[in-house]
Design a protein around this nucleic acid. Sequence first.
DNA 1: GTGTGATCATCT
DNA 2: AGATGATCACAC
Length: 220
Amino acid sequence: MRPPQTVQELLARAEALAGRTLGWLASQEGLDVPPDLRRHKGWIGTLLEAHLGATAGSRAEQDFPHLGVELKTLPVDREGKPTESTYVCIAPLDGSMARTWDACWVRQKLSRVLWIPIVTAPALQDRRIGAPVLWRPSPEEEAQLRADWESIAEAIHLGETWQLEARRGRALQLRPKAASSKELTWMLDEEGEWAQVNPRGFYLRTSFTRAMLRRHLAAR
DNA sequence: GTGTGATCATCT
DNA sequence: AGATGATCACAC
């Protein structure tokens, strides 16, 4: 599908999908539904990207750069509560990460997100697409994200390799992001020496997206 | 080899 | 059950 020209057009496309199953959408796109997601973890996201006209590929930018919108599918239970954390972007550990929140990648990606809930079901093909939510962080949400990011960024900038664990951050956290724990990347440690560590990514905690979605649905 | 799409698997 | 750490496929 061609890229939407306006945010309104993108939203209209997403709204037209509400209530449809993944099986239906896959058939529209001429794709087979995998038996489960174990070996196809990104399948739902890729399916929605294709249908909504996101630029295919894995470039490090928003899905709809001309609209300033990032697309995220969000797995939810039958009550509409998110059941998984949400990957945001890689955390550069090699010293290339921005020094300020205003300049960082996380803020850019989360500045505007089109959330598409996917309601769980026993069979993948029967999962239903929920009503989309076009979101911008509220001042409170942004303040929390910023505080978490600054805390994490400080640990990285100080080279505290042992602080790269997931407990830090109430809304935003750091977690492994690699093919396996054996994969290594470089980071400057406290002594300024290059050390090898497992790559990390920024993730939104489930509690954060749960509150976000709940607040948004209550306001409709 | 890196980043995006994420969910899986294990431990507490 | 929820959180943390581990992992899978694909594009470029």
